[in-house]
C-alpha cells in the first residue's frame, strides 16, 4: 500500500496507477516499506493501485497480483527501521516501471480495493496486537528477572526509586490490554470484521504505544545492556515502535474511535 510521495495513512491518496491496455494492466508508481518483499521466497505481491481515477473517492483503488519477477518491478533498496534493514525479509522500496500483468490478476473487481482492505486489515491489525501482548509479557519477565537479581546502592534494582511501581504498572497495563485485545477478537467473531472495526482500532491505537513504553522501561532497568546486542529488548523496541505505523498510524485509529464516540451523541 504505502507510497513515499504522499500520506498513505489516508489510503484514498494512493496513486500508483494501473491502466488497462488490451488484456493487460500496465502499472506505474512507487511503494516503500513493503515488508517481506526482500525475502528471496517472496514470489508475488498484492499491490494497491489506482485504476479508476474518475470514480468516487473510495472506489478509485483496486488490488492486483504482481509476481515479483515481472519485468519492470525494480526493487531499489531496503528501507531502514532505526538503522536496521531487517534483511533478508526487509521493508522494500519498489518502483513499478510499465509493469504488465494479465487482466485477470485484479482481485475482486475494479474499484473494490477498499472493500478488500476491510477484510485484510482487521485481522492483520489484531494479530499484531495479540503478538504484542506476548512481547510485553516477555519484556516484563526480563525486567523482573534483571531488576530483582542485581544490586546497586545496596538494594536490588527493583527496589530503587519507583522501579517497583514501574513493574506494577506494567503488569496492570498488560492485564488491561490483554482483555481489550481478547474483546476485540470476540467482537470480530460476533459482529464481523466490518462492525468490529472500532474495537480493532481501539486496541491498535493503544497496544503498540503502551508496549513500547514497557519495553523502554525494561531497557532502562537493564542499564546499557538493554540497548545492546546482548539483550533482545533493543530489537523488540524498534519492532514495536515500527508497529505504531504498520497497518495505519496510531492517529488514524484514534480518528476511528473518536468519531464513533462523538456519533453516539448525534452532534455532528
Amino acid at each position: 500500500m504505502t507510497e513515499p510521495g504522499l500520506p498513505s495513512s489516508d489510503a484514498k491518496n494512493i496513486s500508483t496507477s494501473a491502466v488497462l491496455d488490451g488484456d493487460e494492466w500496465v502499472i506505474n508508481g512507487e511503494k516503500f516499506y513493503i515488508s517481506g518483499a526482500g525475502d528471496p521466497r517472496c514470489k508475488i505481491m498484492i499491490t494497491m493501485v489506482k485504476t479508476s481515477p474518475d470514480a468516487a473517492p473510495s472506489k478509485q483503488q483496486s488490488q492486483i497480483l504482481v509476481p515479483t519477477d515481472t519485468p519492470g518491478v525494480e526493487i531499489l533498496e531496503g528501507m531502514q527501521v532505526f538503522g536496521h534493514d531487517h534483511a533478508p525479509r526487509g521493508h522494500m522500496h519498489i518502483r513499478f516501471n510499465n509493469v504488465r500483468v494479465p487482466k485477470d490478476n485484479l482481485l475482486l473487481g475494479e474499484g473494490r480495493g477498499f472493500e478488500i482492505s476491510q477484510v485484510r486489515l482487521g485481522p492483520g491489525r489484531i494479530h499484531h496486537c495479540m503478538r504484542s501482548i506476548g512481547k510485553a509479557e516477555k519484556a516484563l519477565e526480563l525486567m523482573v528477572k534483571r531488576s530483582a537479581t542485581r544490586e546497586a546502592f545496596g538494594k536490588p534494582i527493583a527496589k530503587l526509586g519507583k522501579n517497583l511501581e514501574v513493574i506494577s504498572r506494567a503488569r496492570i497495563e498488560i492485564n488491561g490490554m490483554k482483555l481489550a485485545v481478547l474483546q476485540a477478537a470476540k467482537a470480530m467473531d460476533v459482529l464481523g470484521n466490518k462492525e468490529a472495526r472500532v474495537y480493532v482500532s481501539a486496541v491498535k491505537a493503544m497496544v503498540p504505544e503502551k508496549v513500547c513504553l514497557i519495553i523502554d522501561q525494561a531497557i532502562q532497568m537493564h542499564g546499557a545492556t538493554g540497548i545492546s546486542q546482548w539483550s533482545p529488548l533493543a530489537q523488540m523496541y524498534t519492532d514495536m515502535r515500527h508497529l505504531r505505523f504498520a497497518d495505519g498510524p496510531d492517529e488514524v485509529h484514534h480518528m476511528v474511535v473518536g468519531r464513533a464516540e462523538i456519533q453516539r451523541y448525534d452532534l455532528w
Binding site: 498484492i46 478488500i116 492483520g124 512481547k135
Partner: peptide
C-alpha cells in the same frame, strides 16, 4: 498468537507471520 509473540520465529513456523497472514486471508 499471544504465546507466539513471545518467541522469535514461532509465528513463521506455523505459517502465521505478518504480513503473510493478511495476504493469505485476502
Amino acid at each position: 498468537a499471544t504465546e507466539l509473540g513471545k518467541y522469535p520465529l514461532a509465528s513463521e513456523t506455523l505459517n502465521c507471520s505478518a504480513p503473510d497472514t493478511g495476504n493469505m486471508e485476502v
